[in-house]
Amino acid sequence: MSATTDAQSLEPAAVRRRWRPRIDGRKRTSNWLSRVFFLATVSAVALLVLLLGVLFYRGWDWLSLDLLTQQYSRNAEGSGFQAAILGSIWLVAGAGILSFVIGVGTAIFLEEYAPRGPLTNFLQTNISNLSGVPSVVYGLLGLALFVEFMNIGRVLLAGALTMGLLILPIVIIASQEAIRNVPLGLRQAAYGVGATRWQVVRHHVLPAAMPGILTGTILAVSRAIGETAPLIVVGASAIIFRNPSGFFSDYTAMPVQIYQWTARPQEEFKDLAAAAIIVLMIVLLSMNGIAIYLRQRLGKDRW
């Protein structure tokens, strides 16, 4: 055995003969692909920047406090959509409470109580499918069930209930995910000192899962805030001059108002719509910000 090694290799010649490492070729592939992935990222961000650019270009001059304080008017100048902003807040509050209560309850049942079996699988599959149903279908359901069958009428409550149903599957799935991520060790520890199922859920599983549940709910709600189609179906008014006075009043919502403005022939209403979209986006971003804050804040002291 000679100890000589090739100057360019770390291995003895006898070992090297059995291998063909192609290091240059492998590195080329790797570098090339990293450029492709970078390009994909850039194009995604670029589209977003373009979108924001157009919005701000068209809407900037129209962005004023009038938007927040004034109501719908025939002239774009001085027109606002306070009723729509308040309508959206009412809708989102109602939908959020409804979907949180029913959604978390369902998630607890499916994860902690329901026996594994064909029935549970069937429920699970259907919940996943429901989250993929187009939102206008929920609008039709809301129209048939709440507005007509339950005879609530074309009022805010019907819109809130419809929105609640729309985001319910998302809340259920997010809550299930959060509950499933609670470590088994925590459950075992609690059962081990003689806790009942509910005591384990109430004192350990839910507090540990709450950041995830709240994040999921807020993200679902911020989806609801941008929905237009189901609201039009269940009867949100496009033209309204008063703020909503409660769950049984006439109402409109931000995206409905924006849609109405963009459909007007006058250019200035389209610019006004761009300004309104900026307001809508600020609301959305702050809701996402709250979700992130809650996740960080509540998630501090954990296993």
Binding site: G185, L186, V193, G194, T196
Partner: peptide, 28 residues
């Protein structure tokens, strides 16, 4: 399980205070 307690392989205290860790089982 109240009469036959258990300690697990991986230490798994509750994400609560030391006091609460001990008191919880007694309380419930």
């Amino acid at each position: 399980r109240r009469r036959i307690g258990m300690v697990f392989q991986k230490p798994n205290p509750f994400p609560k205070s030391i006091y609460e860790n001990v008191a919880w089982g007694a309380k419930i």
